[in-house]
């Protein structure tokens, strides 16, 4: 039996939230602990629910994903944050996300296999300090 991975989804688009909910529903032992529509809500909900993984858009109105990533990592360095973005192919944006501590940058449209691998990595790494985790963090 595998342990449940708690995931917070952050995107200003309801369409993307629906897509991610559908993809995650097909992966065993994943619980969605919240849906946030901007960076400020993501920070608040992370503080409240302490998810194992945050899947967060980069481009959002108000507080954007990179600013929220910086804040969440400073408060909760152990929480894995994967950025999702249509501009993930722009090396400057993706590099900035990695520098700020993102464990993955997923492009759009989504590749379901990559999301499954990401969840399994989080499941495997959970409990290990990020710096000591050798699989991908």
């Amino acid at each position: 039996m595998t342990s449940k991975v708690n995931v917070l989804l952050v995107d200003d688009s309801r369409t993307v939230l629906e897509q991610l909910e559908r993809i995650l529903a097909d992966i065993e032992d994943v619980a969605i602990v919240g849906l946030a529509r901007n960076g400020a809500a993501a920070i608040r909900m992370t503080n409240e629910s302490k998810p194992d993984l945050v899947l967060m858009d980069i481009v959002m109105p108000g507080l954007d994903g990179l600013s929220a990533l910086r804040t969440i990592k400073s408060m909760h360095p152990g929480i894995r944050i994967a950025m999702v973005s249509s501009v993930s192919g722009d090396a400057t944006k993706a590099e900035e996300a990695f520098k700020l501590g993102a464990c993955q940058v997923l492009g759009k449209p989504f590749d379901v296999d990559l999301i499954e691998t990401l969840i399994e990595n989080v499941r495997g790494d959970r409990g290990a300090p990020e710096a000591e985790s050798n699989s991908w963090a």
Binding site: S88, A91, A94, K99, G107, K108, P109, D111, A137
Partner: peptide
């Protein structure tokens, strides 16, 4: 499934991980 930069492609292919990208950027 979209446009990727080389580092991302290598992560997705399982050749490297995010810590390697960070180290390379430094």
């Amino acid at each position: 499934m979209g446009v990727k930069f080389f580092g991302q492609f290598l992560i997705d292919a399982g050749e490297i991980d995010a810590s390697h990208v960070r180290e390379a950027l430094e």
